[in-house]
Nucleic acid binder design. Structure first.
Lengths: 329, 329
DNA sequence: CTGAAAGCGCTTACAG
DNA sequence: CTGAAAGCGCTTACAG
């Protein structure tokens, strides 16, 4: 592969000049520039990204750290990030953290050594100190679904509370009187907000009781278990709002196993809008987050900061939308 | 951050010596080594991966190029690759090719500039020339699900033909007489092999007709359409072997819409073993590939070659397993 | 067993 | 407008 020296030699200029025309970092006499361009063309020269990275401390790579790509929420997010990154010629490193703070710290340490341009964390366990240390070194970072305690970097998330209210109101409109909630892990702000939205609407209903809320782990199995607990406590429930789609799917399974008809006897609504909701039977009503767009937006904000566009430590809440389907008909 | 010079200075040795103890690349007097280690400890020194990459032409990154992470087949593959890569301290860059040869070529060009250590292609469209050019430059590469025309690098895939035979035999055992097949794009070797396996078994059946085969695109929608075509031609079919799980899911949908009972009237079997098959109603019988393991194996073979372990241009065919579920009960 | 020096291929003040 | 030179932080023959 040709190097910048080869180009310089062929064009009869210095490597500094070649560098300038490549990076448009300084004015160059149009004629010499033309010479250089010709030489580049002729040699099929492509700048070496690693040498450039070493000199500039940026490799043209962004890191996306998420809990687990096997969780059906994340592929769309990853795709959103990747598509946006590619438009700008950057590549993305993918890391699964399994929501383990240790794995995240390890990634941060490893990837700093690789001069990654920036980080996107779609992970609930990122440590405050890790965020701070990156900030201090001037490495841009964007967070998804994080608390507002730290306003030291941009945060992107959906309007979870409003979404939860949409879900519960929808169930009420469809005639539900006794609406239960299977909530996710309360260390996740998303889960907390959704629970709050649920309480806000349902608290005013007659016959409401806190025992209509059961905990789950945001996975299918815990959704199933949640239903079992609920049914022993409240056999008369006629609506279930699950804190995410996976738990809603588990709920659907449990109900079917017990011969309870959805939506005739119990209506079910999920949250997230992952594509799985289209293949259940009945198809699942859900509050859809713009997952792909969230990934894209996170990438755009990050890239903007990487390119020196300045940082805005805003919290951006995206709108969600209720998608009514058969499970609440 | 401390550099190797800082360490050398503190330890009172040359940078060459420090490099040697870090990389265990040469014998170093145990006492000086201890000095160096102490200095490293004291300065919290971590070698800069980019500088190392520039010198050694390897960044400690492997590239995984797949068609689309949104396709539920690929997250498990990606996870298998990542877990294995991480064990060795490498990170993985993820690229979506959308099965477009152009995107793949672009990735290859970009990532070569970044001194990626090796490539894993889980993509059917990789060009022969691209493979060759990588080989020529000594960049290791492993292919998934590729033809055997090119024996210039290791190929990993499942035993697709045997799997198809398992599926069809299972349908026969369950009493099916008229078994249709929705096959995937024939430019994919996986789709071809599965079709061949189907023909092999079903060709001996009475009343078999080639019109029992209809084409699909490996997605849900085409599975649904496949069923519609089949039913107009052969209203009496009682078994369907879909070329992959997504098409099987589409088939399930189409059958339900027409009020045809599965498994009572028609039994359905898919292929791949993606997790979606557990949430359909009825749950889907499928031929499971060891997807996660395939990713892990691909990574291990690649890493072995990266570490100089030599290359074996073998084609490895992994066993598949039939998972009987309600859709064929 | 260890060091001095060149090299990996760029970028970027500093001069002119 | 352009060049010489230092620097980014390592590795690796080559001597000794």
């Amino acid at each position: 592969m040709a190097t910048i020296r080869d180009v310089a030699r062929l064009a009869g200029v210095s490597v500094a000049t070649v560098s300038r025309v490549i990076n448009k970092t300084d004015f160059v006499n149009p004629e010499t520039a033309a010479q250089v361009l010709k030489a580049i063309e002729q040699l099929q020269y492509e700048p070496n990204a690693v040498a450039r990275g070493l000199a500039g401390k940026k490799m043209g790579i962004i890191a996306l750290i998420l809990p687990d790509i096997l969780n059906p929420f994340f592929p769309a997010l990853a795709r959103g990030v990747e598509d946006e990154a590619q438009k700008k010629g950057l590549t993305v490193i993918l890391g699964n953290s399994d929501d383990l703070g240790l794995k995240e710290s390890t990634y941060i340490k490893d990837l700093k050594k690789k001069y990654v341009d920036g980080f996107i964390f779609a992970s609930n366990t990122i440590r405050e100190e890790d965020v701070e240390s990156l900030r201090k070194e001037g490495i841009p970072i964007v967070l998804l679904d994080r608390g507002l305690n730290t306003a030291s970097c941009p945060v992107i998330r959906s309007n979870n509370r409003a979404g939860a209210k949409l879900a519960v109101q929808h169930l009420i409109e469809r005639g539900c009187q006794k609406i239960a909630h299977i909530y996710g892990p309360q260390e996740f702000i998303t889960a907390r907000e959704r629970l709050l939205g649920y309480e806000e609407v349902v608290g005013e209903l007659e016959g409401y009781s806190p025992s209509l809320m059961v905990s789950g782990k945001f996975d299918i199995e815990s959704g199933r278990q949640g239903v079992e607990h609920l049914l022993t406590r409240h056999p008369q429930i006629d609506g279930i709002f699950a804190g995410n789609d996976l738990m809603a799917i588990g709920a659907l399974k449990a109900l079917r196993e017990r011969g309870i008809l959805v939506p005739e006897q119990v209506k079910v609504c999920g949250f997230d809008g992952i594509s799985l909701t289209e293949i259940t039977e009945p198809e699942l009503t859900t509050v859809a987050q713009p997952i792909y767009e969230m990934g894209g937006l996170a990438a755009r904000i990050l890239l903007n900061e990487i390119e020196g566009g300045g940082r805005e430590n805003t919290i951006i809440e995206l709108d969600v939308a209720l998608i009514p389907r058969k499970s609440t008909r």
